[in-house]
Amino acid sequence: MATGGRRGAAAAPLLVAVAALLLGAAGHLYPGEVCPGMDIRNNLTRLHELENCSVIEGHLQILLMFKTRPEDFRDLSFPKLIMITDYLLLFRVYGLESLKDLFPNLTVIRGSRLFFNYALVIFEMVHLKELGLYNLMNITRGSVRIEKNNELCYLATIDWSRILDSVEDNYIVLNKDDNEECGDICPGTAKGKTNCPATVINGQFVERCWTHSHCQKVCPTICKSHGCTAEGLCCHSECLGNCSQPDDPTKCVACRNFYLDGRCVETCPPPYYHFQDWRCVNFSFCQDLHHKCKNSRRQGCHQYVIHNNKCIPECPSGYTMNSSNLLCTPCLGPCPKVCHLLEGEKTIDSVTSAQELRGCTVINGSLIINIRGGNNLAAELEANLGLIEEISGYLKIRRSYALVSLSFFRKLRLIRGETLEIGNYSFYALDNQNLRQLWDWSKHNLTITQGKLFFHYNPKLCLSEIHKMEEVSGTKGRQERNDIALKTNGDQASCENELLKFSYIRTSFDKI
């Protein structure tokens, strides 16, 4: 039985969820670079991206490699990797027998973001014989899940209580170790020597080791999670996991709180800001991140802002960003909400898709409305799209047979046209069989910064309504002859009103 693990408890099935942008060198404390989270699957090609990484700022997932063999891993080693800020997950990587050479110096898994409450997941690794993470000293947050690894031993010899604050939620089941077939031998045991430290858990006094050649490092209890030197002297209180010299914040392997210019500090002093819960960055760093993602459509890219001495992905609820200094300031009234469309555009074809934009005031991208039916549609669209004030790209209304009016965009005031449909149009209306009105132009103002209007096959939309939009939106004169079809717009509506004058002759039985 794995020490510190839980057996036999019912657990939810383990679901495996399925960018080499360097964020800056980590400095003297770390020998390499800070790398983003990685999802490495199918083959070993991307694994080489770990070569210079000291910190993975995010998670590391290595999974679904069915053609790899043990010899493929023999020359692979990433000794610079010290810390993973989120979680480490391995799933069905064939041929991998140990992690001792792959990650010989991995010391800390912070667990800032977890995989279903777990910071370390080893699942269905069919050839893994031992973990071998002999320098792993601290899992700051989260638990361990090690399950269905039929060859995995050296679990009962690990004292997880020396690595985690609590072992109650560890789930370590259905491994070879369960069948008591392992016969784990710690260093020196074969020669009758006791080389590794022994600890007591559940009444068992057991030597602690990761492999037959690597003991588990056990520091004096007084050192807590700070770690200790090879001689057993406690590291500085700002260290986490390990250090090369005692009581020196510049000799830590990793930091308990924050890293700044080669030393570990309790908090980031001005003019620095907390970033990702582990390091200090200056304003320029946060500003660069903001600008890199301002026009990016890459998933996970955030326009970072500053709030409460932190550089964070977005302002919290009730705050909006001051564009001059990136500071989050309290909103006066309802907060603006910028919604970034991942692929640059979004099609609204149902109430469900409209709900995804609920509360958005600025759309960074283009909207395509293609709704053919739905219950209580006008009210639903207004509830979900009615706060949109600005669209950076274009607005396209296409084959939306259920629409009679666009009044559900009740606050839309600006279409920038930074991206144009077919390279020309910022407003595009095609084949809307029941569209009769755009907006009530006596109450609604709309500016279209650039781009043209396109109207074709809107049989109940009168040309007068379209011409009014040209005047109000500032697009009059931009359109070419064929942009607004004269014969297919309003051709099934009563669009022309003329005053009919009647004269009559009164007659009676005795007068003409």
Rank of each mutant, 00 (worst) to 15 (best):
Arg113Cys: 09
Ile122Cys: 09
Asn202Cys: 10
Leu106Arg: 01
Phe73Gly: 09
Val305Arg: 10
Glu314Ser: 05
Leu88Thr: 00
Ala230Phe: 15
Lys191Gly: 12
His302Phe: 08
Val305Thr: 06
Leu44Arg: 09
Ile222Met: 09
Thr140Cys: 10
Cys153Lys: 03
Cys252Ser: 01
Val93Pro: 00
Thr267Leu: 03
Val265Ile: 09
Arg145His: 08
Leu44Gln: 05
Asn42Arg: 09
Val281Ser: 01
Gln303Cys: 15
Leu164Tyr: 06
Thr250Pro: 01
Pro31Tyr: 02
Asn308Gly: 07
His302Gly: 15
Val173Tyr: 12
Cys280Ala: 00
Cys215Arg: 12
Phe275Gly: 02
Ile40Gln: 01
Glu207His: 13
Leu63Val: 14
His28Gly: 02
Cys235Tyr: 01
His48Glu: 11
Ala156Pro: 07
Arg298Pro: 05
Val218Ile: 14
Gln276Arg: 11
Lys224Arg: 06
Leu120Ser: 01
Gly132Val: 01
Ile139Asp: 01
Gly111Asp: 00
Leu96Val: 10
Leu90Ala: 03
Pro249His: 03
Tyr134Asp: 11
Cys153His: 02
Met65Pro: 15
Ile84Ala: 00
His302Glu: 08
Thr267Tyr: 03
Asn179Pro: 05
Asn202Ile: 04
Ser225Thr: 11
Leu44Asp: 07
Ser317Ala: 04
Pro334Trp: 14
Tyr30Thr: 03
Thr68Phe: 11
Met321Arg: 06
Thr68Leu: 11
Pro187Phe: 14
Asn135Gly: 13
Leu332Phe: 15
Gly32His: 09
Lys129Glu: 09
Pro334His: 02
Tyr94Asp: 05
Lys176Asp: 05
Ala190Cys: 03
Val108Arg: 06
Asp72Glu: 02
Tyr134Pro: 12
Ile222Thr: 04
Asp75Ala: 05
Pro316Met: 09
Lys80Asn: 09
Arg162Thr: 06
Val218Trp: 05
Arg162Met: 09
Cys255Ser: 00
Ile185Tyr: 04
Ile82Arg: 11
Asn150Val: 06
His48Cys: 05
Cys293Met: 01
Thr320Glu: 12
Pro79Glu: 12
Leu136Lys: 00
Ile201Val: 08
Asn42Val: 04
Leu50Thr: 03
Asp86Lys: 15
Ala198Met: 11
Arg110Thr: 07
Cys153Gln: 07
Thr329Lys: 10
Glu130Pro: 01
Tyr273Asp: 01
Pro316Val: 05
Asn43Thr: 06
Asn117Phe: 10
Phe115Tyr: 04
Gly111Ser: 01
Leu50Trp: 06
Thr320Phe: 09
His236Pro: 03
Asn150Lys: 08
Pro70Thr: 09
Asn43Ile: 04
Met125Tyr: 00
Gly318Gln: 08
Gln245Thr: 07
Thr189Glu: 13
Thr250Gln: 08
Asp169Gln: 09
Ser225Gly: 10
Lys224Asp: 13
Tyr259Val: 11
Arg298Asp: 05
Asn170Lys: 07
Pro334Asp: 12
Val55Arg: 02
Phe115Ala: 12
Thr320Val: 11
Gln61Asn: 07
Thr221Pro: 04
Tyr319Phe: 15
Arg279Cys: 07
Glu51Ile: 13
Tyr304Arg: 04
Ala198Tyr: 08
Gly142Arg: 01
Leu96Ser: 01
Asp75Gln: 11
Glu57Leu: 06
Cys286Trp: 01
Asn308Arg: 08
Leu99Met: 08
Leu120Cys: 03
Val265Cys: 11
Thr68Asp: 10
Thr229His: 03
Gly333Phe: 06
Gln303Phe: 05
Ile222Glu: 04
Asn149Val: 02
Glu238Pro: 00
Glu180Leu: 08
Glu266Trp: 14
Phe283Leu: 10
Leu44Lys: 06
Gly111Ala: 02
Val218His: 10
Cys234Arg: 01
Cys315Arg: 00
Met83Lys: 03
Ala156Val: 09
Lys176Arg: 09
Arg263Met: 02
Cys264Ala: 00
Thr267Ile: 01
His48Phe: 07
Lys294Pro: 13
Leu260Phe: 08
Thr157Tyr: 07
Pro70Ser: 08
Arg256Asp: 09
Ala198Gln: 03
Val305Glu: 04
Thr157Met: 08
Pro316Trp: 02
Pro187Cys: 08
Ala119His: 00
Val206Gln: 15
Pro36Gly: 15
Leu63Pro: 00
Ser143Val: 11
Met83Trp: 02
Leu164Arg: 04
Gln216Val: 06
Leu50Asn: 02
Gly32Met: 05
Thr189Gly: 15
Gly188His: 09
Leu89Ser: 02
Asp178Glu: 10
Ile222Phe: 15
Met125Gly: 03
Met137Cys: 15
Thr68Met: 02
Pro269Ile: 13
Ser143Asp: 13
Cys335Met: 07
Pro246Ser: 03
Val34Ile: 05
Leu96Phe: 03
Val167His: 05
Asp39Cys: 11
Leu289Trp: 06
Leu120Gly: 00
Leu44Val: 13
Leu164Asn: 06
Glu71Ala: 14
Gly300Leu: 11
Phe258Val: 12
Pro271Arg: 10
Pro336Glu: 10
Ile222Gly: 10
Glu181Thr: 05
Asn42Ala: 12
His226Arg: 07
Leu90His: 00
Met65Ile: 06
His214Pro: 05
Val253His: 02
Thr194Asn: 09
Leu120Glu: 00
Val200Pro: 13
Leu29Pro: 02
Arg256Gln: 11
Thr157Cys: 13
Asn242Trp: 14
Gly37Pro: 11
Asn105His: 05
Phe258Ala: 11
Cys153Phe: 01
Asn135Gln: 12
Asp159Pro: 11
Lys148Val: 10
Cys153Asn: 01
Asp169Arg: 14
His302Val: 10
Tyr154Leu: 06
Glu57Cys: 14
Gln299Asp: 09
Cys264His: 00
Pro70Ala: 10
Leu136Gly: 01
Asn308Ala: 13
Phe285Asp: 04
Cys153Ile: 01
Asn308Asp: 07
Gly188Val: 11
Phe78Ile: 03
Glu130Ile: 10
Phe285Tyr: 03
Leu152Ser: 02
Ile222Pro: 09
Phe285Gln: 06
His226Leu: 12
Ile56Leu: 10
Arg208Phe: 15
Thr194His: 14
Gly183Ala: 11
Gly300Arg: 07
Gly95Val: 02
His28Trp: 07
Asp184Thr: 04
Gly227Trp: 11
Cys209Glu: 04
Gly37Arg: 05
Ile122His: 01
Phe205Ser: 07
Leu152Met: 04
Cys286Asn: 01
Gly333Ala: 12
Arg298Val: 06
